[in-house]
């Protein structure tokens, strides 16, 4: 088996300082293979977003082992209204990652942006618009393109479709699945929505109270959950459907 894209073992993490220092992650161990989509599910406060931040290097108060093999892992945020700079045009937003990675030549940047657009289902005419002039689905496509254009192979998706309505959810999930195949991406997919995880991920880890209670292939977890918390989550999600 190839070197894992992410290897986490016995990871603990804390928020706050001094007396307010609170442990958020407890002894988390996890591997993400290249090209794999791993779902991390749990209710809010379970530590799944903290786990994502650790992988991105945004949390520094940690102990344990954390190895990430992709340079510059990127994140796609839940709310495409907040993750795109409201005063900039789509063209600027997509060129900025290239500028940050040292592509000085304007024509070169422009060419690479234009090459990338069809991959995420955007058109050249969108480049001159500002985020407010795009639909929610288009905004999330821009956010995905901005996360991918630097060429990183690891993408953390933090509830990327939960702000969208159901038909758009399906579109964006199809897009993400297609991109993973085409570009050989690895996804760490954070979600509370088991149905969405089922559509996109190959493996799933269930988190509660800062620890992983169960992990395995999606089919196995969904058909034969072993941990009572997983059963509870599944029952709750079925009740909603």
């Amino acid at each position: 088996m190839a070197e894992p894209m992410v290897r986490i073992s016995h990871l603990n993490s804390w928020y706050g300082r001094g007396r307010n220092r609170k442990q958020v992650l407890r002894d988390v161990s996890l591997e993400l293979a290249p090209g794999e989509a791993l779902g991390v599910v749990g209710e809010s406060g379970s530590g799944k977003s903290t786990l994502a931040k650790c992988v991105l290097g945004m949390v520094t108060d940690i102990t344990g082992t954390l190895e990430v093999r992709s340079p510059r892992p990127q994140m796609v945020f839940q709310d495409p209204y907040g993750s795109l700079n409201p005063v900039k045009t789509v063209g600027w937003i997509l060129e900025e990652p290239l500028r940050a990675s040292g592509v000085r030549d304007r024509a070169e940047r422009r060419r690479r942006v234009l090459d990338f657009l069809p991959l995420v289902g955007l058109e050249e005419e969108h480049l001159a618009r500002k985020p407010a002039q795009l639909s929610g689905g288009q905004r999330q496509r821009v956010a995905i393109a901005a996360a991918l254009i630097q060429g990183g192979r690891l993408i953390v998706l933090d509830e990327p479709v939960s702000a969208l309505d159901v038909t758009l959810q399906a579109q964006i999930l199809r897009l993400l699945a297609g991109l993973r195949e085409k570009l050989g991406l690895s996804y760490l997919f954070i979600s509370h929505d088991l149905a969405v995880v089922y559509q996109l991920c190959t493996r799933v880890a269930v988190m509660t109270e800062g620890g992983i209670v169960e992990e395995g292939d999606v089919d196995q977890i969904y058909d034969h959950p072993r941990h009572p918390y997983t059963k509870k989550l599944l029952a709750a999600s079925l009740a909603l459907d």
Partner: peptide, 27 residues
């Protein structure tokens, strides 16, 4: 804001985040 976090993840330098990413929003 998420767009600032995202710029940091992309490796945009702080001074650029301050004056190019955030400042125009405050005009």
């Amino acid at each position: 804001r998420d767009f600032v976090k995202s710029a940091r993840l992309m490796g945009v330098r702080d001074m650029r985040i301050i004056f190019v990413h955030i400042l125009p929003n405050t005009w």
